[in-house]
Design a protein around this nucleic acid. Structure first.
Lengths: 209, 209
DNA sequence: TAGATTGTTAATCGATTAACAATC
DNA sequence: TAGATTGTTAATCGATTAACAATC
């Protein structure tokens, strides 16, 4: 499997969504034209994206079940991936309840919070533990992924602790930018960015020119 | 004010974050080199981004308080923007509790859910109402923005109802792609995309080649 | 075969970078 | 002035599109 461009990988969940839907409705094949129309992009782009991804059959299009499987394969959706979550605020709680993770093979095995009164609660399937138990649990279970949902001012120190305990990938929901060693993977997910874009487009529309 | 490229607008919240922090610590000026280093991008890009945005002073850099104000202005952060939220599941609840919206002038004035037993509850500052009251309230308060956090299978019909009631911008957290008239603004925010990217990079790293 | 489809190429577009010019 | 900084230009890079070739 060749390395896919990041822009292609970004679209994979969109293809996945549509193809999963078609699969559920019993469709066997789908053309790139159809996919392109549903996603609002050029058919050629679909062909390029799926060139290394889809199970294509000349004349009838892409084979739905096989293509679905290939996307799952590429994204490692059926490899189960253990993760911990740090910071059981409102966003942390939401992510603990969010069911969309299962699809991607993610399982949050424990959540941590500095507020000891939260310890012992279950949110969704996950137990909240005091943050003092964090390094030990990460080491014991060989957890490599952490979801970071602490307040912004605790982001850097928490990230440092996580890395020290053996975490290799951080999904960062704080607006802080983290400085980490180059062998640590960080993905920033900032709701503020989406809101800023919405906000900007609204401004331009409401007071045009 | 000229039209900024979307890539520039996407970085504005990052500049905002840093400059706000500098402002809080009493700094008066900041150079593009400094900003570039903190964001991990080229100094020239910072200069280009901020050319139309920042209050620059030759020889000392960008004026922190004025630049902060300009970014707020461009993003319309001090215009208060009323919004409603539909779908009080786990993600909906999180967004109702999320305090980051205030900064951008967003105020969620009401939340709606089809589950009538949720009605009457307050989540954060916001009351949950039965969905039957939605069109009336949107019209009465002239609300133009909706946050869509319903289950995927209700996304399309809910969006249609919102638009019928007068909503002009939808912040879509469902994985569905909505088909809307061209005068309606939609921003898709799919956590699955972020997860897919993290997942892909992890795969590549764990089983290299 | 004819026709529907995917594959591939070259052209285009836009964003980023690097280097230097301009400024105070 | 010298020096620190921003402004601007041209080169580069990468993604997308459009058009056509190849396939079964």
């Amino acid at each position: 499997m060749r390395v896919l461009s990041l822009t292609t990988v970004k679209r994979l969940p969109n293809y996945y969504q549509i193809i999963k839907d078609l699969h559920g409705r019993g469709r066997e094949y789908v053309s790139c034209d159809r996919l392109a129309k549903l996603l609002g992009i050029a058919p050629g782009l679909v062909r390029k994206d799926l060139a290394e991804v889809a199970a294509k059959v000349q004349k009838v299009g892409y084979h739905v079940p096989d293509t679905l499987r290939n996307i799952q394969e590429i994204l490692g959706m059926h490899n189960s991936k253990q993760a911990v979550l740090v910071g059981v605020g409102s966003l942390g709680q939401a992510l603990l309840n969010y069911r969309g993770f299962d699809d991607y093979g993610f399982k949050i095995v424990a959540a941590f919070d500095t507020d000891a009164t939260k310890a012992g609660q279950f949110i969704g399937q996950t137990e909240v533990l005091p943050v003092s138990l964090m390094p030990g649990l990460i080491r014991r279970l060989y957890v490599k992924i952490a979801v970071l949902t602490v307040p912004a001012d605790q982001a850097k120190t928490t990230a440092a602790e996580l890395i020290k305990a053996g975490i290799e990938a951080i999904w960062n929901f704080t607006p802080e930018s983290l400085e980490v060693p180059s062998d640590i993977l960080v993905r920033n997910e900032d709701l503020g960015v989406g809101l800023a874009l919405l906000s900007y487009e609204l401004e331009r529309r409401i007071m045009p020119k």
